[in-house]
Design a protein around this nucleic acid. Structure first.
Length: 597
DNA sequence: GTAGCGCGCGCC
DNA sequence: AAAGGGCGCGCGCTAC
């Protein structure tokens, strides 16, 4: 069954069962809402239809209430209103998005997306000021403001849901879109749950890493001793006693004056030159990065009660990968991952999908030869084994080049050999690139479409097609067309890989629920405070093709099986019987650092 | 004083 | 080695 959630009058949450009536069957205050959800969840296990999981679900989690399934209208609209598979169904705008529905997290600034200015919204919202302070959350939850989606009347939410179902039904691929919306919505639930659970983080281990790399914590306003030493050395070797190594402009000038003819100060370009200052400079940059991104001030800001709780943004990028807001959770440097340590008596089940994107490409293109290369553990060795290239490194560079559109260097030279061996896969990405170059959008396996290039891009192209266009105009237009083609080339692969990962994670989440339901609470967890789910295995991290489950150690083996099974099932869901495999690198460990093979 | 931008670099 | 896709973040710097 489905239950639609919205507002009814000031301060009340109304629930509608659309299979029975469009009138609410119940309404409660926001304070009573989590209890009602809990009761309905245990008795009927509905799919909850609500405007925005990021606004509704934290209130439930704060009360220890989890739900099994939902339909996130914001995320679904972002998919449906862009998808080429609904283009005909959307027609001339008769099925337009209502103006109260916020844009999706990746839609801002995209061409063709009308996001009404707040002042222009004729919204049917109630004033929900009396939501203030009603929740008992362990962390404060923002009250609903007058234009908050929490305050949208339930009949408007119901109408939007109906619009979305109609678009799915009238689309070219209803089954795929249903799966995508379910997976995307499950991702939204997981994103909120990851934040609520937090990633176990051992401050002492992290501080030890900092001490090893940077030395003792410096006084406020000072740099760590190790950085000062390196800076002094670099200045001496460059003959530039006053150069500020943190200033790109300053540093570039000093490098050139010392005879190092670089165009930038980036590490890869520096490494192409021979000069004694370069090694200490690169070492300095490495430490400077660690200091500014993940050192003591990061710990102070982000680690609370032994947990790292970033804000995940499901659907936060055009391709469907997630983003995060704050904390840099998707860019944790490898050398601080040793600080991710399971609680005593608990373990981390760490798994990442090996060479996910090339495997997805093989499946998308139905390229039997390419899928064959990936059978067994290592995809790149399979390519070497097939005689396409000589070394594993060549295979890797060639594959990345094919998916990203490399034209130069070693990668560009190897791509043609790959194209001869795997013509179907290569044709698929080449076609996606060609679509992008002519300004069209491309679509993933399940129906997420790429944004269209902006007005600026189109202006550049049409300028180049005028009779009076200069050769510089034409060059610029071709270059920008190829840039966009590389984006769309990669979009189909990265976007479909994101769909695989969502299906993997959603499937795993429900398996973890089954393990929790079937197992007695382990002794190690029985006396834990906090929500029930924190006494049983739960997801604590997600990074594009990698997950971490925190689990009582005695359940770790069961969890590992669930993780692997979910990967196999995700492959089936997306590619049916086509024989492409999705092996995992999987480890049961106490520390994230131990998971690297 | 601060908003916006380019750079560089961490991750996938 | 090479420099092709997607991000977020902190920094220095410039323009207001």
């Amino acid at each position: 069954m489905r239950i639609v959630v919205g507002a009814m009058g000031p301060g009340r949450v109304a629930l509608v069962d659309p299979s029975v009536s469009s009138d609410p069957f119940d309404s409660v205050t926001m304070r009573e809402f989590p209890g009602l959800v809990q009761a309905l969840e245990s008795s009927r296990r509905p799919r909850w239809i609500w405007a925005d999981t990021r606004r509704w679900y934290p209130r439930l989690l704060a009360e220890g209430v989890r739900v099994d399934r939902c339909h996130d209208l914001v995320l679904a609209a972002a998919i449906l209103d862009q998808s080429t598979t609904t283009a005909a169904a959307r027609g001339d705008g008769v099925r337009a998005r209502p103006d109260w529905l916020p844009a999706g997290p990746a839609e801002a600034g995209q061409a063709g997306v009308v996001v009404p200015a707040a002042s222009a919204v004729h919204s049917p919202l109630f004033e929900f000021d009396d939501f203030d302070g009603e929740t008992n959350a362990s962390e404060p939850v923002e009250p609903a403001g007058p234009r908050d989606v929490l305050a949208v009347p339930v009949d408007a939410v119901l109408a939007e849901h109906a619009r979305q179902l109609a678009l799915v039904a009238a689309s070219e691929r209803p089954g795929a879109l249903r799966l995508l919306i379910a997976a995307e919505s499950a991702g939204a639930l997981i994103g909120a749950e990851l934040h609520a659970a937090g990633l176990p983080w051992h401050r002492g281990v992290h501080e030890a890493v900092l001490a090893t790399e940077l030395g003792p914590k410096p006084a406020p306003g000072r740099k760590p001793a190790r950085m000062e030493e390196l800076a002094t050395e670099v200045r001496a070797l460059l003959g530039a006693p006053a150069v500020n190594l943190d200033s790109q402009v300053d540093l570039l000038k000093a490098l050139r004056r010392a005879g190092i003819q670089v165009e930038s100060t980036s590490r890869w370009e520096l490494r192409e030159h021979e000069h004694p200052a370069i090694e200490p400079l690169v070492a300095y940059k490495k430490l400077a990065r660690l200091l500014s991104a993940n050192a003591w001030s990061w710990l102070d800001e982000w680690i609370v009660d032994g947990r790292f709780r970033p804000d995940y943004v499901p659907g936060g990028t055009a391709t469907g990968r997630w983003a995060t807001a704050g904390g840099g959770a998707l860019q944790l440097p490898k050398n601080v991952r040793s600080a991710v340590v399971a609680d005593p008596g608990w373990s981390l089940v760490v798994a990442d999908a090996a060479q996910l994107e090339p495997r997805v490409l093989a499946g998308l293109a139905h390229d039997q030869a390419m899928a064959e290369a990936g059978r067994g553990r290592d995809f790149y060795s399979g390519i070497v084994g097939a005689g396409v290239v000589e070394t594993r490194d060549q295979a890797k560079v060639a594959i990345l080049g094919a998916m990203y559109g490399a034209t130069t260097g070693e990668s560009g030279r190897l791509v043609p050999r790959l194209a001869r061996a795997y013509p179907r896969a290569m044709a698929l990405v080449d076609r996606a690139a060609a679509e992008g170059e002519r300004g069209a959008s491309v679509t993933t396996l399940l129906g997420r479409s790429s944004p269209l290039p902006g007005v600026d891009w189109r202006a550049t192209q049409s300028l180049a097609s005028q009779p009076e266009a200069t050769s510089a105009d034409e060059r610029r237009a071709r270059s920008r067309a190829r840039d966009w083609g590389r984006f769309t080339r990669n979009f189909v692969v990265q976007g479909t890989a994101a769909e695989w990962a969502l299906c993997w994670m959603a499937g795993l989440r429900s398996k973890l629920g089954a393990i929790a339901g079937a197992s007695p609470v382990p002794a190690v967890a029985a006396h834990r405070s906090g929500p029930a789910f924190e006494r049983m295995p739960h997801l604590v991290y997600y990074l594009h093709d990698e997950i971490i489950v925190h689990t009582p150690s005695e359940l770790a083996d069961q969890v590992a099986v669930a993780v692997a099974d979910a990967a196999t099932e995700a492959g089936r869901l997306l590619f049916g019987e086509f024989p492409v495999e999705f092996p995992l690198d999987l480890a049961v460990v106490e520390s994230y650092a131990s998971a690297d093979a």
